[in-house]
Design a protein around this nucleic acid. Structure first.
Length: 118
RNA sequence: AAGAGCAGUCGAGUAAUCACGUAUAAGAAAACUUAUAUGAGGAAAGUCCGGACACCUCAGGGCAGAACGACGGAUAACAUCCGCCGAAGGUAACUUCAGGACAAGUGCCACAGAAAAGUAAACAACCUUAUAAAUAAGGUUCAGGUGCAACGGUAGUGUAAAAGACUACCGGAGGUAUUGAGAAAUACCUGCCAGGUAAACUCCGUUCGGGUGCAAGAUUGAACUAAAGGUUAAGGUGACCCGCCGUCUUUAAAAAAAUCGCAAAGAGCAAUAAGGCAACUUAUUGCCAAGACAGAUGAUUACUUAGAAACAGAAUCCGGCUUACGAGCUGCUCUUUUUU
RNA sequence: GCCCUUGUGGCGCAGCAGGUAGCGCACUCCCUUGGUAAGGGAGAGGUCACGGGUUCAAGUCCCGUCAAGGGCU
């Protein structure tokens, strides 16, 4: 889990990021990228979204969200967050296909998706 | 030993590395850093009942309305719980029951059937009288057929043929007596015999009886706006005054956001004692630290185990109900069989 | 968090004061036409979302689940 400093909180910020319309995706996840930073000392903010359409059960949604967080955390720790730390905000959205996938699957999918941006 | 019934218990553990929420302490201007402690459930779920709590509305009383429905108790309250009665099911342990009234009134009971509730017979049958017979008139519904259901049932007496018309037993209803706190049970008497349906309207009894739900609500709160007052100091318009704009003060209203509500403590849990068949109550002692607001429990590895299983994630807080679900284990009880 | 509505043939809908479940389109076969469409005739296709209860009898009445959709903030 990332610390509070790195979390995207405001409703308006979510709307702005979605409207910026810079999307990369594969069959399991979407990533919405916000504007590029001007001041590099400002921390990049992350958010994780699993909609109720994916599953009605709160346990399943929580599980996917936690796996995504863990994967992103490990990625930032390993590489220093290249390719994504130049944006103000990043939103990770799970799709219906991500149901019932374990950690190794989620991890490989997300890292592939991020490095495909390069 | 096998098969049942009821009740209870658990909801994987240990270690390491990385990571998160909250609290406390230390450091620091602050962001934050470090250390320590602690961090989801039996259903947290469904939102189906009942409360606490908060605000708005409101003279007082009733009606309408809603819920419940054997009886007695428990409880803050309840559609919950305990005990008990009756009915149904089961060999039994035991389980289930919206379990008041259709004998206040109204409605409905398809098809079939004579007839579906009206002291009723348009099928059919039995008997008597008239007649040679067909048939007609009168008495009757025992037996027949129909249907979920046919106006108490079975056996006899009785009669022209029949009928609680009469008798015995059985079922129901009413009355009296006894027992019990009561529902009710038992005994005796009375031919009294009345169809079903109220999860149909309705009647009776009891309780509630305005609305909205913590996104309730309380406090802090800038700009802009509106109103009132001032114009002392500085300003614009103008030759000057009034006036207008502006400005200052006060009041109203008040978004984002923050704090409280709300997070350690209450209708709490455990033990002991007393009361009670029990639910539960009273007293004493001890124990309590999840708590956000894009919303905290995860990942990897090793070992234990038959195997790192099921349902599933707190959101103001309690008491229930209902539904979902894993692997066993323990206790008590019942039935059958075998052995002693 | 709170509240409400709807589940009936393949699709869209009726049916509710309980009594054998229907309509339109679509589907199959036949007629009509040189052929197709339209038209005419015949036919098939339902666990009335699921599980209980009340009743002689439930799509309809009552209770509980599940699914879909909508609203308030």
């Amino acid at each position: 889990m990332l610390k509070k400093k790195y979390r995207l909180k405001k409703y308006s910020a979510f709307i702005a990021t979605y409207n910026y319309n810079n999307i990369i995706y594969n069959d399991k996840f979407c990533i919405y990228l916000g504007k590029e930073k001007k001041d590099s000392s400002f921390p990049t903010k992350y958010a994780f979204v699993v909609s109720k359409k994916v599953s009605k059960k709160a346990v399943v949604r929580n599980r996917i969200k936690r796996l995504m967080r863990e994967s992103v955390r490990l990625y930032i720790k390993k590489t220093g967050g290249e390719y994504i730390n130049k944006y103000i905000s990043v939103i990770f959205v799970a799709k219906l296909n991500s149901l019932n996938s374990d950690f190794t699957c989620v991890d490989s999918c997300l890292t592939d998706l991020i490095s495909s941006k390069a």
